[in-house]
Simulated assay, not measured.
Amino acid sequence: MTATQSTAPGPRHVACIMDGNGRWATQRGRPRLFGHHAGARRVKEIVRACPDFGVKYLTIFAFSTENWKRTQSEVAGLMKLFRRYIQKEARDLLAEGVRVRFIGDRIRLDDKLVRLMDELELLTSSNDKVHLTIALNYGGRDELGRATKRLAHEVAAGRLSAADVDETTLARFLDTHVLPDPDLVIRTSGEARISNFLLWQSAYAEYEFIDTLWPDFNRAEFARVLAGYGARERRFGAIRA
């Protein structure tokens, strides 16, 4: 079996579409924001589990460019939750060796939230135990649109030749340019779609769609999914030798 055909021992980079918070709350007769708060607590458990399973990079889909279509009260509640999460968890993330990055378009986010995001990135910039990337006001198509606009600007300014533009060049303009591509993408809640998440980066990722709602996605479930990944054969377009 060749290197490109090997069975992976475990994913180094896991990305999660954290779906099902609202339904989890509704099932319990509680408002949707109750589920989002429960989901935020679950993030902490999964981040802490990553080193034990050899996961170096964890990317989570917190708020998409399409989520602005939700009710004004839910959006406002989510923004408040993001601010609270950063303020509450910053010191623990620093102490536990977690480096935090944010991807997505910050233009539409409020100034206080953006400032907190910047501060958390700077605070944890020397950490290397786990790299936590939070996709906030993120959409894969939006990211590609912003990347190609920056690339076109470089060509127009004469700093880049159009003849030299290829997929490697474009990747340097993506929000995730400092990160490896995800090996495994997990979506909770029983939905089987990728919802505009890491479209470019997940070209060769393995996908796992599970029925568990995100607030119930615990360490044991995480371990089960990772074990299933380890049994897969990744050929990256090649064939069995």
Rank of each mutant, 00 (worst) to 15 (best):
I186Y: 08
D111M: 11
K44I: 13
I134T: 02
R141W: 11
V178M: 12
I103D: 04
F222K: 01
I86S: 03
G104V: 03
T59K: 04
E233S: 13
R219G: 02
D105G: 06
V47P: 02
S125N: 09
Y85G: 03
S6N: 11
G228V: 09
R141G: 09
P51Q: 11
F197A: 02
Y57P: 01
A162S: 14
R172H: 12
R41E: 15
V225F: 10
K149T: 14
T133W: 06
P31H: 04
A3Q: 07
R83Y: 06
K44F: 08
I107A: 15
D216L: 03
F82K: 00
T65C: 07
I103H: 04
Y85E: 02
L81C: 04
A157H: 02
A171R: 13
K149Q: 15
V43D: 04
V75Q: 09
R240M: 10
L160H: 00
A163Y: 10
E66G: 04
E89S: 13
M79E: 01
H13R: 06
F236C: 05
P51T: 05
R108S: 14
F222Y: 15
E74W: 10
I194T: 14
A205G: 00
R41T: 06
I210K: 00
G54H: 03
A147C: 10
D164R: 11
D216G: 02
D110E: 08
H177G: 02
T168C: 10
E167W: 08
D110W: 05
